[in-house]
């Protein structure tokens, strides 16, 4: 069965770039969300074994998603994908339960390295 992954970003272009950066041989079913509210809905439907999460979004941002996940069962491997390259941003999201941080613009190599490291590919 393919692995359900969720790509969360308010920019359709950014979601497209991320999806293009995924390893082509990875057997996944991909869902998308344009903000945190949509992300949490998709998560509750079991569509996010792995979640690629942007931080800066309208409605409900990435930090709020991490907080909401923590209050539920955090049954998702969250990889934060953000243009916010402040070290403190990275520390914060890791402390909130994200397994990794990838900076934008997304690099195929960096993303693959992390996926390998966590044994998801």
């Amino acid at each position: 069965m393919s692995l359900p992954i969720l790509v969360v970003d308010d920019s359709a272009m950014a979601r497209k770039m991320l999806i293009k950066s995924l390893p082509p041989e990875w057997d996944v079913s991909i869902a998308q969300a344009a903000n945190g509210i949509e992300a949490m809905a998709a998560y509750r439907e079991g569509k996010a074994a792995v979640m690629f999460l942007d931080l800066n979004m309208p409605e409900m941002d990435g930090y709020q998603v991490l907080e909401a996940l923590r209050q539920e069962d955090m049954n998702s491997m969250v990889i934060v994908v953000s243009a916010d390259i402040q070290p403190i941003a990275q520390e914060r999201v890791m402390a909130m339960g994200a397994i990794a941080f990838v900076k934008k613009p997304i690099s195929f190599d960096a993303l693959n390295e992390i996926l390998k490291q966590y044994g998801v590919i």
């Binding site: 920019s11 243009a83 390259i85």
Partner: peptide, 27 residues
């Protein structure tokens, strides 16, 4: 918007270093 978002991340990081504070970025 996405191009600007990425560019602003770099500007935010420079400002954070200069002021030694965490900078919140807008959409």
């Amino acid at each position: 918007q996405e191009l600007t978002n990425i560019a602003m991340g770099q500007a935010g990081s420079s400002l954070a270093m200069l002021l030694d504070a965490f900078v919140d970025l807008s959409v």
